[in-house]
Structures are given as C-alpha cells and as structure tokens.
C-alpha cells in the first residue's frame, strides 16, 4: 500500500469513527464528497488521486467497518465507467460525478433488455438492488445481453422507482423499472464488444467492493465481539477466559485473515488490467470467500453476544443484516463456487 493511500485510509477511519456507526446517510454523503473520497480511484490526469482499484477497496473496507449508509460502491462504479469512455465527453462527466452528483449503479444482476423499436433503442425490464436511487440523477444500466451500457435519466418518462426496504437498515435499495425507455445516443457509454468489456470490468469491481466491505465489517465486528467477551462476566470470570470461546474467536480471526489476504492477493494480481485473463476468477474468489466469511462471522458473533445480540440497541444485528445482504449482492450468489471450479477445470 502506498504511503498516500495509507494516510488516506487512516484519516477515513478516523473520520468515520467520529461520525459513529451507521451514521445518517445525508451527513455521511456530504463528508464523502467534501473530503474527495469519490476521487480516490480516478486517474490523476482526470483530476483524481490515482489510487486505482486498491485505493477504492481501502475505502470500501473503511466504510464497511463503519457500516456507512452511503451508496459509495454504487457511485464509484458509475464514476469508473465514465472514466473509461471516449475523451470527448469524459471530463465533463467525471467532474460532475466527483463533485457529488450521484449516478447510481445496480448492485446485482437483473434483467434489462435493450431493443430497437420504431428505429430507436429502448430499454425494458427492471434493475434491482439500486442503492439510494431517489438521490440520483441518472442510473448506469448494463443491458442483460451486455450489448450496451448507458446512462438513463431517472426523471425520464417510463422510469419508475420502487423503494424496497431491506432488513439491512444501513442501505436503501430500490427497484428501477423501465417501460420502453428511449436511450439517448449522447448518454450511451459503450456498445457491442466495448460494452461487454465495460460490463465485465464493472462486475469485477463490484465483486471486489463487496469483498472489501465484508472484510471491513467483519474486522470491526470481531473486535467488538472480543471486547464484549472480555467485559461480560459469568460464573465469576470473564467469558474470554473460556477456551471454548477463545478457540471460536481464533477460528473467526483466521477466516477473516484468509479472506483479507485473498482480497489483497486478488487486487495485486488484477492491478490495472481488469481485462487480463484470470481477473474475473480472482475477483469472484475474493467476493465469494469474503462475503461467506462475513456472514458466518456475524452469525457466530451474535451467538457469542448471547441475549444482548438479539436486542435492537446493540449493533450486532446491523452487521449481521449487512453481511447477509452482501452475500446476495453481486452476481447470482449460486454462481460463484461452480464458476471457480469451471475456471480451474478450463485452465487445465
């Protein structure tokens, strides 16, 4: 990790700790934009901090630690997409989006079909798991066939938002319905093979963002759990003295360290080449391991907290619910393990 990134990360951790766990979305978003966190991965020649994918993931991790209620992953995916388009339109979009205009990106794959009707390209279908869509000016849409990537203004006729409250109260997810919405040529970011490459790049980054969020959240939750076991006394001794519980915590720490190492290893392997062979498998492995680790760590953490973990005033449940949602975001959750096997079997 570069010295610059290390400092950025430390200051992010500090700021988020001041703000408190799962702080309100509007104040957190103001901070994110004021402190320039949206610029982290943007190349220097476009006015960004040039910290790349590792930089973005360092922030996803910190925001995961703090259970931040901001659509940072969704926003940075859109920013990355506009950084990759032709030079003509790029600067304007990058400037708008990094200054705080929010363009949302779905955090799961869903069905949007782009087709030609009456000589115009139109969009039909639904985009699911779109964070804070009511705050966004546009949505970034990849058509299901990956033959086009476009920005769609959310105030366009035929676009309808439905708020879908989730058990995870640190996110606000929407369904965005499209009923024959005409796509504007100036808002088209990529077509055909370019669109396929861009979709792949976005999926890889989405996997890594979810992995990083999970590593951050799991780390914070394990610290809290161990602290709780040190403090809570039963049978005239701290719970942390019981070897049965120590060993469970040690296993959780080991699983966390493995997921974190795999994430860092995948980031190193991918570097700046999202289109390199193996990049997709590396991101899938990191996502799969980190999100399943977070969910099982959170499940154990609640058990280790006992009754207090079942109460609303204790934050244990916030982590658990975010972990369970993370597992369902990204690609179709059931595809990760067979895909990793296919990558192995195909590569032999």
């Amino acid at each position: 990790m570069s010295e610059t990134l290390h400092q950025l990360r430390e200051s992010a951790r500090h700021v988020l700790a001041e703000l408190g766990l799962a702080a309100a979305e509007p104040s957190t978003w103001d901070l994110v934009t004021e402190l320039g966190w949206l610029l982290v991965a943007v190349p220097e020649e476009l006015g960004g901090l040039g910290q790349g994918l590792s930089g973005a993931c360092a922030f996803h991790t910190e925001l995961g630690r703090g259970l931040a209620s901001v659509p940072y992953a969704s926003a940075t995916l859109a920013i990355d997409a506009v950084c990759r388009i032709g030079a003509g339109r790029r600067a304007d979009w990058v400037q708008r989006l990094t200054a705080g205009e929010y363009v949302c990106t779905p955090l799961s794959d869903s069905t949007q079909i782009a087709r030609v009707a009456a000589g115009k390209l139109t969009l039909r279908g639904v985009a699911s798991a779109v964070p804070s869509a009511d705050k966004a000016s546009h949505i970034l849409v990849c058509s299901s066939a990956a033959d086009c990537v476009a920005l769609v203004p959310l105030d366009r006729a035929g676009v309808q938002l439905t708020y879908r409250p989730t058990w995870d109260s640190t996110r606000r997810l929407f369904d965005v319905h499209f009923t024959d919405v005409a796509l504007d040529e100036p808002l088209m970011l990529a077509r055909e093979t370019d669109a396929q490459a861009l979709c792949r790049a976005l999926s890889i980054q989405r996997d890594l963002a979810l992995a990083a969020d999970s590593v951050g959240g799991a780390g914070a939750l394990l610290e809290r759990t161990v602290d709780y076991l040190q403090t809570r006394r039963q049978f005239a001794r701290p719970l942390a003295l019981f070897q049965a519980l120590k060993h469970r915590c040690a296993d959780l720490k080991t699983q966390l360290a493995a997921a974190e190492a795999l994430l860092i290893g995948s980031l190193d392997r991918i570097g700046d080449s999202l289109d390199a062979p193996g990049a997709e498998a590396a991101a899938k492995a990191a996502k799969y391991l980190a999100c399943s680790m977070y969910a099982s760590l959170a499940e154990e953490a609640l058990q280790l907290h006992g009754g207090i973990g079942m109460t609303v005033e204790h934050p244990c449940h916030l982590f658990l619910k975010r972990a369970l949602l993370n597992q369902q975001l990204g690609r179709r959750p059931d595809c990760y393990e067979p895909d990793l096997a296919d990558a192995l079997l195909g590569g032999l």
């Binding site: 290893g265 096997a341 192995l344 079997l345």
Partner: peptide
C-alpha cells in the same frame, strides 16, 4: 463442482 469451487477459493487464500 460447487465443493471444488469452494476449495479453490480456500486454496487461493
């Protein structure tokens, strides 16, 4: 294949 995929991720880790 699912079991193998899970193992691949753990071995990579």
């Amino acid at each position: 294949r699912r079991d193998l995929g899970r193992l691949v991720a753990k071995v990579d880790a």
